[in-house]
Design a protein around this nucleic acid. Structure first.
Length: 466
RNA sequence: GGUGCCAUCGCCAAGUGGUAAGGCCGCAGCCUGCAAAGCUGCUAUCCCCAGUUCAAAUCUGGGUGGCACCUCCA
């Protein structure tokens, strides 16, 4: 398969360091607030990547961290007069719940900063011993960017420009304005951790490097992991700094392939906390089926910026609906895991740097073709088993169509309404039988007011939430 | 100011040298009591200019217009 490497800026064939195995590390959320659509996009992209790697036969080890040490968490804990753990547990659970609703599979490893402190100490100590980090007389430990000859090669920035930008706010205690904290000394504050460098907190960048060493890296390999991923904004400074730490503290580079997903905008506007237009996942999930969000957020190539808007989302829903309607037509039949050329082509498309658009085009054509044949008279035994196997493959690799198709079309309809609909449908059937079409159409109008449309089929009348 | 990305039908969106995928919307039809669903058919020469080439949406140069990062951020 091929992967676009955002550092080399080209598509590269994916060749893992250890044949048949793939290691993947993705920067996960800082659990101090609800996850927004951007978190969802990133999680979905790398969930898909892990699935595609597996489908290509790789034994995948996927790690996504949870940052549970952070100034914003502490700030919130103080504001709400709560324990840090209470805050981080709450948002971690919410994150897991929301990811599940999106059909995002749990990574193999989910390291937390609080559980990785020893690994951070080791890494920081190595950097100090090797002359790549220094302690200030205030007790902070900084990474010495000047000691790393390859600093800024990842994001290809120009040192002087960075300095120009940083000069104003640079601390006099830092040797170089670009130097970043590995350990922040904290005094008069009980929310600190003991370390060989004194009481304080780790810097943000150090946790990823440390976790990767602890959970994924093999000392003999050239790279700590095969693939490192995250949002486009993380390339600089976060990933630049991670890469610098790892290359200076260990004898290997951090990652062979770097992948960065594009940003999610809301109605052409950047989503940001300061603009107050963050679209929280929990709110979106109340309005839309998680799988519709999954389909929509994955429908555009992962590297492109994504402009979230309701109109496009509903277009995506219609596309997903078609998969589910085909599932309805074949409901109750079991699949036998048959391999088809459709599946080969689908995997091929996704293996080309996650070309989801191509994959969706293939799916649409497969669905149309299956419907067309099912529309014509015949027993279609072969087509049915083949189609069922294809749908199962789509479920597995893309996570589309995983629900019971009848339940899928009931999203947002409560039990009371369901009973009411059932009663109205019986009334309408009676009117239809009596050829009282005026009455039956009136009932249909009434049902439509619930946002529900009816479908008369030889098997009876079915309803769907529009 | 520095670094980088992008510009394809009304809308969303693939395609990165060989003559424009797919979806939504729209129109016409089949099916239907009528619908819905499903199916069939129809709809673009790729922001502008110049160049390279037998051949360019795809490469090069120059415009124009969007956008991102450079500060915590997926």
């Amino acid at each position: 398969m091929t992967i676009y490497d955002s550092v080399q800026k080209k598509k590269r064939d994916f060749i893992p360091q250890v044949q048949g195995k793939a290691t993947l590390y993705v920067c996960g959320p800082t659990v101090y607030d609800d996850a927004h659509l951007g978190h969802a996009k990133s999680a979905l992209v790398f969930d898909l990547l892990a699935r595609v790697l597996k489908a290509n036969g790789y034994d995948v080890t996927y790690a996504r961290n949870i940052t549970d040490i952070d100034d914003k968490i502490i700030k919130k804990a103080i504001e709400q007069k709560k324990e840090i753990k209470e805050i981080t547990d709450f948002y971690t659970e919410a994150f897991h719940r929301e990811m599940e609703a999106l059909g995002v599979l749990r990574p193999d490893i989910e390291p937390r900063a609080t559980e990785s402190l020893e690994a951070m100490f080791t890494l920081i100590q190595n950097l100090i011993d090797l002359g790549h980090a220094y302690k200030t007389n205030e007790g902070d430990v900084y990474f010495d960017t000047a000691s790393d000859g390859e600093y800024l090669t990842l994001s290809r920035r120009v040192q002087e420009e960075e300095e120009k930008q940083n000069r104003i706010e640079s601390s006099s205690l830092k040797k170089n304005s670009a130097d970043f904290a590995l350990w922040k000394s904290v005094k008069n504050d009980n929310m600190t951790y003991e370390s060989p460098f004194g009481k304080g907190r780790p810097g943000w960048h150090v946790e990823c490097s440390a976790m990767i060493e602890k959970h994924l890296a093999n000392a003999n390999n050239k790279y700590a992991v095969d693939i490192h991923g995250g949002g486009a904004d993380l390339l600089f400074p976060h990933h630049e700094n991670e890469a610098a730490q790892t290359r200076c503290a260990t004898n290997h580079a951090l990652a062979n392939y770097w992948m960065h997903n594009g940003f999610v905008n809301i109605n052409d506007q950047k989503m940001s906390k300061s603009l107050g237009n963050s679209f929280f996942l929990k709110d979106a999930l109340e309005k839309y089926d998680g799988e519709v969000l999954r389909f929509y957020l994955l429908s555009t190539h992962y590297r492109a910026n994504f402009n979230f808007n309701e109109e496009d989302l509903l277009t995506s829903k219609k596309r997903l609906d078609k998969i589910y309607r085909l599932k309805k037509r074949l409901f109750g039949l079991t699949q036998n895991g048959e391999k088809t050329s459709f599946q080969e082509k689908l995997l091929e498309a996704l293996s080309d740097d996650l070309n989801v658009s191509q994959a969706l085009a293939l799916i649409d054509m497969m669905v149309t073709n299956a419907n067309e044949i099912l529309d014509t008279a015949g027993k279609h035994k072969e087509l049915k088993t083949e189609t069922l196997a294809n749908l199962a493959f789509i479920e597995k690799i893309l996570g589309f169509g995983v629900k019971n198709p009848f339940i899928y079309f009931q999203f947002g309809i409560n039990q009371e309404t369901k009973e009411k609909l059932a009663a109205l449908i019986i009334q309408r059937d009676e009117a239809k039988k009596a050829k009282n079409f005026e009455a039956s159409d009136k009932i249909r109008e009434e049902i439509l007011a619930y946002g529900v449309s009816l479908m008369d089929t030889p098997q009876g009348t079915f309803w769907e939430k529009v």
